[in-house]
Nucleic acid binder design. Structure first.
Length: 165
DNA sequence: GCCAACGTTGGC
DNA sequence: GCCAACGTTGGC
């Protein structure tokens, strides 16, 4: 958006939530790449549309899980494009306001990068001083696509790559 | 299963 | 434009 030609956007980091019973890191490992459909929140949509770039790295977070936490890493593999599940009447995320002519909801493709040998659980994240400011630790912070600090991203990754906590 | 914290909707 | 009611998210 308005960048000088030939200048790549600065790489950013994100956290994306998925209920593992719905779609887990193992599913993404099997599929390799998958459209991240079903986002029905304007703030999350705007992040995908305006701020994400191909190649950005993503903490894959298992929500509504026991325990919840970061299960691995993925990367953004496409620009935002219309989420066609919004105009599929049979889809659980159907929204009659969205049409092929006038799509309301967008998605990006997400590609598998790695699964952590050690899931970095939410309690562990909360215990870690250096991660105190992460959005995901805030009570009631429900945004399903959220920005992550580079330093926080690297810290989580190093925790996840450790076999034992 | 409970419920707090949000976001959205709709009456006025 | 206010705000109560309702639906959803997601930790616990």
């Amino acid at each position: 958006m308005g960048e000088p030609l030939g200048m790549a956007a600065k790489k950013r980091y994100w956290l994306m939530k998925s209920e593992p019973s719905d779609y887990s890191i193992d599913d993404l490992e099997r599929d390799g790449k998958e459209p991240w459909d079903g986002i029905r929140n304007y703030q999350a949509r705007n992040i995908m549309r305006d701020e994400m770039s191909i190649g950005d790295e993503v903490l894959f977070y298992h929500s509504n899980a026991d325990p919840p936490g970061v299960a691995g890493i993925a990367k953004v593999a496409s620009k935002a494009y219309p989420d066609h599940t919004a105009w599929d009447k049979k889809n659980k995320h159907f929204d009659k306001r969205s049409t092929p002519e006038n799509p309301v909801w967008l998605m990006v493709d997400v590609e598998f990068v790695e699964k952590f040998p050690h899931l970095v659980s939410l309690p562990e994240i909360k215990e870690e001083e250096a991660l105190a400011e992460m959005m995901v630790t805030k009570r009631g912070m429900r945004l399903s696509v959220q920005p992550v600090d580079g330093a926080h991203f690297r810290k989580i990754r190093s925790m996840g790559r450790r076999k034992k906590k």
